[in-house]
Computed example of a mutant assay.
Amino acid sequence: MSTSEIATVLAWHDALNSGDVDTLLSLSSDDIEVGGPKGAAQGLGPLREWASSAGVTLKPGKMYVHDGVVVVEQEASWASDPGTTHNVASAFRVVHDQVTSTFRHDTLEAALAATDLTDKDLV
């Protein structure tokens, strides 16, 4: 387990949730891969566009970590429906204190299955 990987992912959440897109980009690699239910994209431009327009808040919960992969259970809410929250999970890959990929999954189980992480990786 790496404290650095966890700190990077938590800082990434903080930047996204506070609308600090510049910090979010600085925590992400130039060729970051971003994916979710509506598709995937690569690069800082698409990340900036998504972060500026998605209106999402992702409150981190349980975290699983192994070899640079971090899965985070999240309570998600969108500005378009502020009274509703959804439990989702995202899988991150962190290399040299930068997020190189993040993919949102509908459930924690799906994110763990996609990354081969298990309860033994819970921090």
Results as ranks from 00 to 15, higher is better:
A79L: 11
V34T: 11
A40K: 07
L117I: 00
F92N: 06
A113S: 09
A76V: 11
T107W: 09
A40H: 06
T115E: 03
M1Y: 09
V70W: 10
F103Y: 08
L117W: 02
H86S: 13
T100I: 13
T57A: 12
R104I: 00
S2H: 13
Q74E: 13
S77F: 06
T85S: 15
L10D: 09
S2I: 01
L117Q: 04
T8I: 01
S26N: 12
A41M: 05
E33A: 12
D14C: 08
D121R: 06
L112W: 07
A113D: 10
H96D: 13
G45S: 12
T8H: 11
E73R: 14
T107H: 09
D67I: 07
D30S: 12
V70M: 04
A111I: 02
G35M: 07
M63L: 15
L27H: 07
T100R: 10
T3A: 11
I32M: 03
M63I: 14
W78P: 03
G55A: 08
D67Q: 15
G35K: 07
K62R: 13
D22W: 05
T102C: 04
V94K: 09
N87M: 11
G35P: 02
V70T: 07
E5K: 11
H66L: 10
V65N: 11
G35Q: 07
G45A: 14
V99D: 01
A7Y: 02
Y64N: 04
Q74G: 01
S80R: 14
A41E: 04
L47M: 15
G45L: 06
K62N: 05
I6S: 12
M1D: 10
V70G: 03
A111F: 06
A91M: 08
S29A: 15
G43I: 01
T8F: 09
G35I: 02
L58D: 10
E109F: 04
A113Y: 04
D81N: 14
V88P: 03
N87E: 12
S29P: 00
M63K: 14
T118H: 06
G55M: 07
E49L: 12
R48H: 09
D116Y: 05
L47K: 06
D97Y: 03
H13A: 06
D14Q: 15
R93S: 10
H66M: 08
D67K: 15
Q42L: 02
S90W: 03
L27M: 01
A79M: 04
T115N: 03
